[in-house]
């Protein structure tokens, strides 16, 4: 029962891409339209500036080329991603707006995402 309500709610609001498991696979393809994947590289203890436009539904793939772990943490607390050393992590953008982020471990590392509303 609860599960049905959950699915119905997801279907009604348009399913964000990161919804996982059965609920995700159960949805019709029209709702499953994937956003773009934009890569942001971390190297030399810095987030490399990216120029690509971002839209709600897009995925940011954080690529950490450093030998130490980093986080990408939104200042507005919307999200926090841990990116281990020499590894990748992803974040699906759910809300539009300009979000400044930083690394919790090395707060001198900062960056900004400008996320546009999804066109219907």
């Amino acid at each position: 029962m609860l599960r049905r309500t959950f699915l119905a709610t997801l279907a009604a609001v348009g399913l964000p891409r990161q919804a996982s498991g059965a609920a995700w696979r159960a949805l019709p393809k029209s709702l499953a339209k994937a956003g773009a994947t934009v890569q942001i590289t971390i190297t030399g203890i810095a987030f490399v500036e990216h120029k690509q436009p971002l839209t709600v539904g897009d995925t940011v793939e954080w690529i950490n080329k450093d030998v130490v772990a980093h986080t990408a943490t939104a200042r507005n607390k919307d999200w926090r991603v841990l990116i281990p050393e020499n590894a990748k992590a992803t974040l699906v953008l759910k809300k539009p707006g300009t979000v400044e982020f930083y690394c919790e471990y090395h707060p001198n590392m900062t960056g900004k995402l400008v996320i546009r509303e999804k066109k219907s």
Binding site: I45, Y105, H106, N108, M109
Partner: peptide, 17 residues
């Protein structure tokens, strides 16, 4: 050493926080 400097500046800032 230059990368180390950026890393350790991060540590200093983190410690201050």
């Amino acid at each position: 050493l230059q990368t180390g400097l950026k890393l350790f500046r991060g540590h200093q800032m983190h410690a201050e926080q």
